[in-house]
Design a protein around this nucleic acid. Structure first.
Lengths: 225, 225
DNA sequence: TGACATTTTATACAATCGTACAGACAGTTA
DNA sequence: TAACTGTCTGTACGATTGTATAAAATGTCA
């Protein structure tokens, strides 16, 4: 049904070092990323992914393995990038001046919003996928070792600013911040629905509200009674 | 395999007006509620629901209809109750004194936390199910007419308190509040994971932090720059 | 009692699922 | 060229899916 695309069978042998299937592999991972982001793990069919990637069924298995393996591969593929962005922002922050709660929140939140707002639909899909799995405890055990370390770094910075604050209160505050951040990307339909005017669709447009909301929230939550 | 239970075939014919299958119907809906809450729509099997309800496969279809119909029935079954609770709280509030942002947030958030903290595992399951669908735009169109009207009532109250605030800012603030509330129930594993101490598992225990966080957040988000 | 409506059982069905694999194909190396 | 490795196609498999339905069971009512 679908005509063979331009690059079918093309191999970048100029270098000779790039494995022949590397391009196909990425097509598969990209397609899987889009599919999983759209409807979640269970609703997605391996055949759907194949169709989306414009490859045959067997290729998905060849490059992606198990459906579950494929899912985890997709998730882990970009974790490093996001984590690095967050840590870099933090370092810049600390190099310039003393961090504040607001600037910490900004440093944590901005990379994710930027990723979700990029032109690249692939990064946007990844952002939605993250939103999907973060709000589901089923995946927590699998995902915790990937994301929590960076969260703990930020948690430590918050603790430096509020040495007397209850650690559990700090953890809760950060979790609430994360879920607020996530909902900017995941619940855009609801935001647009409750505003009667057409709401902007780029997550970055909500950056200031989000940062204000989370900063104000943390400040008040940590305030000694 | 499973022995016939105590009440198999029992009919409350004392009244005679209660349909014979009403008990079975509720067993099916309850089981479906628990299953859908646990893993979401797509991962659940009609046969799983039947097993959970301790009825045969056909009974699920007889009382619940389609899998999708069953899902919607389960969702709609308790909406009225939750909405009423929220509106009652609001009325009490307005009767006593002038509402504040904090008291409004409390009135909106508390019923949900209480429902999720009840001993009744069924209500708890419903709370988790709501958390699942709220954070998924796939269900928004179906759910908006059920939940949004009450949200709009609260939105109007907020607007009364801050007449000059941008309506879109108000809508965003409320959405962030909702997602924070939801995450208290849905992301308990993550909260517990980031706190190193064992965190309490009753959502109501987080009521104060949540209200502080959301009020502080809204106050700062609405603050004129 | 016997006709009746409702509920439950048991089974069947086509469709689709994830996975596996033999063979065709392509490009590299000897 | 021939052997070889990595990639891809096509198809097949058993398992499981959602749904439908005939027949049995159950309780009601005349």
């Amino acid at each position: 049904m679908i005509e063979s695309d331009d690059q079918t069978g093309f191999i970048p042998s100029s270098d000779g070092r790039i494995a022949r299937g590397e391009i196909t592999r990425e097509k598969v991972l990209d397609a899987a990323e889009r599919c999983f982001a759209m409807t979640g793990f269970d609703a997605v069919t391996v055949r759907q992914i194949a169709r989306e990637a414009k490859v045959t069924l067997g290729v998905v298995g060849f490059h992606g393995g198990n459906k579950e393996t494929l899912f985890l591969t997709v998730l882990k593929r970009r974790v490093e990038t996001l984590n690095t962005l967050r840590l870099e922002r933090l370092e810049e922050l600390k190099a310039q001046s003393e961090p504040t709660i607001e600037s910490l929140i900004s440093a944590y939140v901005t990379p994710y919003l930027e990723i979700a707002s990029r032109g690249d639909p692939q990064w946007r899909a990844y952002a939605m996928l993250v939103a999907r799995i973060v709000s589901d405890d089923r995946y927590y055990l699998e995902m915790a070792p990937l994301y929590d370390p960076v969260a703990r770094v930020y948690l430590a910075e918050l603790a430096k600013l509020r040495p007397d604050a209850d650690p559990q209160l700090l953890a809760t505050s950060l979790t609430l911040t994360v879920s607020a951040m996530i909902s900017i990307v995941a619940s855009q339909a609801r935001i647009a629905g409750l505003s009667d005017t057409a709401a902007p669709d780029l997550p970055l447009a909500y950056k200031d509200v989000l940062i204000d909301f989370c900063t104000g929230g943390i400040l008040r939550a940590l305030e000694p009674k």
